[in-house]
Simulated assay, not measured.
Amino acid sequence: MLRTQGLTWRVGEVAIVDGVDIALAPGEFLGVIGPNGAGKTSLFNLVSGLRKPTSGTVWLGEDDVTALPPHRRARRGLGRTFQSSSVFGSLSVRENVRLAVQAHQGGSLSLWRRASSFAAVASAADQALETVGLGNRGEALAGTLAHGEKRKLEIALLLAGEPTVLLLDEPMAGVSAEDVPELVAVIRGLTRGAEATGRSVLMVEHHMDVILDLADRIAVMHHGALLACDTPDAVMAHRGVQEAYLGEGL
């Protein structure tokens, strides 16, 4: 679904991302961890097209997308969330998602457009809201949502684009402890749900309990390079990971 080879981004002589090779299988959940400054978000910026790599290649399926801008990667099935929440606070929850659906489907809100097309947009928006557990919050103003609910809304906006590969950049950031379990359940459903066949997730997260709960494999970054990429048990037992990230006493 997603593959990088030798992906590198240098600023002067410093390698922010250094020769990273990852491969994401259909339906797989790959977690990305590492100390602050390890290059995790920079890796996401390269994969999503916000940054141009110094060298290396990014593939979506069989397509080399290294030179494509973010919006063209999105059209090919790559969706991304960011660390900071970004929704239209003055619009309702449902209106936010309807705009995202329409942006994905194309066309304008013309008076000459078939009425059935509006129904299709509304239906897709409602389905995305149900998927993230906001089906009963459609009429609420997005700006009034609790932070955990805004995170769910951002995932609904992502789903509106019908991505096959989802990049989630620290979705638990700022979420209260009591809201974490619900958000974890939503994220688990992105690959495990009945409608998620083939959908894959690459997620950066600092909450180790969340990563261990969700991930099929964990990639560990350190000083911009990939230190390890294996099952959660294997990564937890990796001496280099313990020293670099989890601590000597683990």
Rank of each mutant, 00 (worst) to 15 (best):
G12D: 12
G12T: 14
E13R: 09
E13I: 07
V14C: 11
A15V: 02
I16M: 09
G19N: 13
D21Y: 00
I22V: 15
I22S: 02
A23D: 11
L24M: 09
A25K: 12
G27A: 13
G27L: 11
E28K: 08
F29W: 06
F29A: 05
L30H: 09
L30R: 07
G31D: 01
V32S: 03
V32T: 04
I33M: 13
P35F: 01
N36L: 11
G37Q: 12
G39Q: 12
G39W: 08
T41L: 02
T41D: 01
T41A: 03
S42F: 08
L43E: 03
F44M: 12
L46Y: 02
V47C: 00
R51Y: 15
R51C: 14
R51K: 14
K52C: 12
K52R: 15
P53T: 12
T54C: 06
T54D: 01
S55D: 14
T57D: 01
T57S: 09
V58W: 00
W59F: 13
W59D: 03
L60P: 06
G61I: 07
E62V: 13
D64F: 04
T66E: 11
T66A: 10
A67Y: 01
A67V: 14
L68T: 02
L68N: 00
L68P: 06
P69M: 06
P69T: 07
P69I: 03
P70H: 03
H71P: 05
H71T: 02
R72H: 14
R73W: 06
R73F: 09
A74W: 07
R75V: 01
R76H: 13
R76K: 15
R76P: 06
G77D: 03
G77Y: 08
G77V: 08
L78G: 02
L78W: 04
L78P: 04
L78C: 10
R80A: 10
Q83G: 08
Q83C: 07
S85A: 15
S86Y: 07
V87S: 06
G89Y: 08
S92T: 15
S92A: 12
S92M: 10
E95L: 09
E95F: 13
E95V: 08
V97Y: 05
V97R: 10
R98F: 01
R98C: 12
R98N: 04
L99T: 10
A100F: 07
